[in-house]
Write a protein that binds this DNA or RNA. Structure first.
Lengths: 237, 237
DNA sequence: CGAAAAGCAAGAGCACTGCTCTCTATTTGC
DNA sequence: GCAAATAGAGAGCAGTGCTCTTGCTTTTCG
């Protein structure tokens, strides 16, 4: 298929795309200021100097607007992590690991409301698929590639997990479907760490670490380093 | 101090408490059905057959109502975990660990909206303190006591973490403030696992495991067992 | 070229929300 | 018994998402 997004169709299409972009931009600004609950379609229409009903030519509902913001947030986070990871020496697994983790946390701290949008409570009656699923995997992809590289280099989890048969089956399926050469054990451990990573970020962002941890950045780095050791990627291979 | 909640004051107080309870009850029912975003003060007033303005005699704002629901949710979760943990042989550390984790997950699956209320996106401009902090620590308390018992029995983390000075300091502070005899290393590891535990539950509940893990319960149990091994509580001591 | 079709914007309007204010009835405590 | 505190109801304000109708402009095509 040819790409309809870059095709220079009529002038009308161009101003439509431009206006769509302006709507999402001001919506994102409102989101960053007041959060998802405070995002008002009328307010962004007002700021753009147009009637609220006109916005419905571009987004069929408020939730549709939110959905594009969700996709954008996933992309923004994924891009930040990819950029950070690409800047470090590819052979240094532990540094790549740390770069991904740090940039995920950094992005979350810089865009708390957008982070809440994608890792917080699902918005309405919950409808993710299907546009959101692809961008959502970007950071996961990064971690997956990392442990695939690690395994190819002979790294192994520092502590071999015991898994039920169904879990082994799930891990195999997942690796196949992602096209990654990763053993069930390694995948299992890194899945747990994936949850831990975003659990740490979520706890910090949503206030669960108040009166618990003071030096957040150091604590986070220490935890990530500990995870790297458990992944067996801290030593040379 | 004497307890003013049980004191048989005037008849008016009693009907007030009763009505307050009925409001929170129907509010909780609405919450369970439509989530926090769909909780309407007018709707619960309607269901109770009273004017919406009358509800404001009992709760100064919608957020105040939500706050009590948050406290209740923390208590409900804490109670469920405590009950489950108290039912197992106290010497069996791994089983206590599993009981806490499983009941936390079970409660979350049974009360998804209430779970989202306490571990999802913070409601408005975020205001937790101070009534919420105490019930929020109940399940944390359980885990803390568990590792304190473990350490007293000679258990040690299977993998000793390396920590920065500030983290060691934070861990010492936290142990002191909680009045628990736990080494910084042990506390550090269990804090990470705490984040992992609720990260796993949140991911499962919020759909991050769609197309990733099929047998959720088995996967969860396997992860929890792996955590127990890393805590060094799976073997006898 | 010019008419039909399609796209766009605005306004009015509906049903709903949280919340405030005023007014009246009831209960309480001195 | 009477003044004060309390509870409830209703109207009303400002805001929301969303729909429908009414004009206008641009594109499309015979």
């Amino acid at each position: 298929m040819d790409s309809p997004t870059t095709a220079p169709k009529s002038a009308r299409r161009m101003v439509r795309e431009e206006l769509t972009r302006r709507i999402t931009d001001t919506a994102r600004a409102h989101l960053a200021r007041s959060g998802a609950a405070g995002l008002s379609l009328r307010a962004v229409a007002r700021e753009l100097g147009m009637a609220s009903s006109a916005v419905y030519r571009y987004f069929p509902s408020r939730d549709a607007l939110l959905t594009t913001l969700i996709v954008d947030a996933y992309d923004s986070l994924g891009e930040a992590c990819e950029a950070a990871e690409s800047r470090v020496e590819r052979r240094d697994l532990a540094l790549r690991h740390l770069a991904i983790a740090r940039s995920a946390r950094g992005w979350a701290l810089e865009h708390p409301h957008e982070y809440a949008l994608i890792y917080g409570t699902p918005v309405p009656g919950y409808q993710a698929p299907p546009d959101t699923v692809d961008p959502a995997t970007r950071v996961t992809r990064l971690l997956l590639d990392l442990i695939a590289d690690a395994e190819a280099r002979g790294c192994r989890p520092a502590f071999t997990p015991e898994m039920s048969e169904s879990t082994v089956h799930d891990m195999r399926n997942l690796a196949d479907q992602a096209g990654a050469r990763v053993s069930p054990a390694y995948l299992f451990v890194s899945l747990g760490q994936w949850a831990q990573l975003f659990g740490l970020i979520t706890f910090e962002l949503f206030g669960q670490f108040n009166n618990v941890v003071e030096s957040r950045a150091e604590f986070f780095d220490d935890q990530v380093r500990h995870m790297a050791r458990l992944l067996g990627i801290l030593e040379e291979h």
